[in-house]
Design a protein around this nucleic acid. Structure first.
Lengths: 220, 220
DNA sequence: ATTTGCTTTACGGTTTCCCGTAAAAAAAGA
DNA sequence: TCTTTTTTTACGGGAAACCGTAAAGCAAAT
């Protein structure tokens, strides 16, 4: 089993229960950080002597007064990977939007995800054991939800224009913006066509509906 | 100090850390329930012998398969008060919207609120000690933050029409729906006027922007 | 260089939305 | 009961969005 685990979690209560769970697995050497910056510092310092084998991290870290360089779990994961590419990473968060969790595995290549939910402590144990055996740990509600996705596959172009709509920009003004930011295609027709395609794929009729959907799914 | 405490919390990890906190306060007799129904049953049964002195409860309970009569912390509090009016109640939740927390104190007369956040375990200890001394425990960020709200105060009418927009209904079709459901005013002009008022209060220009905002704030 | 196929843009007609004004209805006050 | 005030609705002009079609641009292949 792992000997050296780091916990990055701003909620004291959550951190306590993770520590308890690690103790149940006879993992004695665990450190914990309440801030991402502190977590990264510990990872960096540990490179010389005994590097951490596993990082358990939350996704959202609340901004209290203290100014931090790294303010989210995603950013911490990226930074940690630069310092120690082989570090195993387990995300423990309340996030349940499939798009967000999917991005963790696809883009950040995390080794596991456990959602803060009913039997999360048990899940946490299973996940740690799986990862120790070099297996990934997906939440089971997610294992099927991935391909159940007959929905639409949002490109960065899609999210860009939906974000602009959500920010209050008029549709007719978007082409100018796209051109200035070298996002292509920039024409109004292309934009309309793309929006139609997305809405048809999801059987939506209005932009408002699309925005609500993207917010729910964490796409924007 | 309290001798008899009940924890109602669906997240196993949160429950564990509450138990740990109680143990630190030398409270040995603590029970825990993962469902509201179970919590109420325990409170009712304990009436004969040794009633609980304190209930620590979450607000949101996730709906897994098991059908439950009580599905929220608010409902549990109301039901518990009917069974045991003198029961002290401490809410421990991630909720941070001032309106919701305010309602707990004003309407449900809870004795304390601790938000799941940075130093929540310490807060929990303080809150329990305060409540034991018959004092209320308000989160400090709440003591001033109450009236900072320069935003718009959404009525049920507001959320109804925004929800309809988010569901894809065309604006011109909403009056019919409102009339059929006896929501008034139902006229298209009134609806437009109301939407304009909201958007102006928030300096928004487009419906899409409003929908995104309401999704972010949990208003719809 | 020319053709072919695809992507992007331009344009016009139609619908919906936006917004101001005025009429109608309802509520409040005398 | 009859004003007065407020709220709600109706209407109309103009702007934006919607939607289909056709033209233009562009890349790969012949």
């Amino acid at each position: 089993m792992f000997k050296n685990v780091l916990i990055a979690e701003d909620h004291e209560s959550a951190s306590i229960s993770i520590q308890k769970t690690l103790a149940d697995l006879s993992i004695v050497r665990s450190d914990y950080a309440y801030y991402c910056d502190d977590a990264l510092t510990r990872i960096t310092k540990a490179q010389g002597s005994e590097p951490y084998e596993l990082l358990i991290t939350d996704l959202s870290f609340e901004d209290d007064g203290c100014q931090q360089k790294i303010s989210s779990g995603e950013a911490l994961i990226k930074a940690a990977r630069l310092v120690q590419p082989g570090l195993k990473i387990l995300v423990f968060s309340a996030e349940q939007r499939a798009a967000v969790i999917g991005a963790l595995f696809n883009d950040l290549k995390v080794n596991g995800y456990v959602r803060k939910a009913r039997r999360d402590a048990q899940e946490l144990k299973k996940a740690i054991e799986s990862i120790y055996k070099d297996k990934r740990h997906l939440p089971q509600e997610f294992r099927q939800d991935i391909r159940q996705n007959n929905a639409h596959n949002f490109t960065s172009y899609d999210t860009a224009i939906i974000r602009l709509l959500s920010s209050g920009m008029a549709q007719k003004d978007i082409p100018d913006y796209l051109e200035q930011n070298q996002i292509r295609p920039s024409g109004l027709s292309s934009l309309e066509k793309r929006l139609n395609l997305i809405k048809e794929a999801l059987s939506f009729s209005k932009n408002e509906q699309l925005v609500a959907y993207c917010k729910d799914k964490g796409i924007i």
